[in-house]
């Protein structure tokens, strides 16, 4: 495998880690807020939710280390311009577009839900944070992985 393929593979793995660990970490915090607000706490939820938050937070730290490692490798590589070529820019724009549409859909959904269910601003913000960060990253990594498999 050449250097470009290795760096692209590493970027995809890192992006999946970033998106999933962030969703697990913040999703755990969100679940904790909902459970406390609704008074749904059980022995099981008191065990599972902090565990999910811990795993997600550790995964996020690991993802940040992977990101620093990748940035270092990319900075030292003469292939940086190749890896961030025109198709990369197009995929990035597509991922942002899908992320933006998803975010608008979730905001609309939250506004509709607000008419039926009581929830705090903090819950809404956390949902938007998870969707706004994780969706575009996951879409970008998925497009890249699918294209890389097709090109192989």
């Amino acid at each position: 495998m050449d250097e470009v393929s290795k760096l692209i593979g590493q970027r995809n793995t890192m992006l999946f880690w970033v998106a999933i660990s962030f969703a697990v970490w913040q999703g755990g915090q969100l679940a904790d807020e909902i459970v406390h607000l609704r008074g749904w706490g059980t022995e099981m939820s008191n065990l599972v939710i902090p565990f999910a938050v811990l795993i997600g937070a550790l995964g996020w730290v690991a993802a940040m280390i992977m990101m620093l490692n990748y940035a270092g490798k990319l900075g030292r590589s003469r292939k940086q311009a190749v890896i961030q070529d025109e198709a990369y820019g197009q995929d990035q724009a597509k991922a942002f577009r899908i992320g933006y549409i998803t975010l608008i859909a979730v905001i609309s959904g939250l506004m509709a839900m607000d008419l039926m269910i009581d929830f705090t601003a903090s819950i809404a913000i956390r949902i938007l944070l998870i969707v706004g960060i994780s969706v575009p990253i996951l879409v970008f990594a998925s497009i890249n992985r699918a294209d890389a498999e097709e090109a192989a």
Partner: peptide, 30 residues
Amino acid sequence: TQAQLAEAVGVTRKTINTVENRVFIPSTVL
């Protein structure tokens, strides 16, 4: 090969593949 052409023009093999398959429209420079 796609890889050799990609190397020659400074893009990834995926970009060559997507241009060949008419998925991606290259810039004038490319």
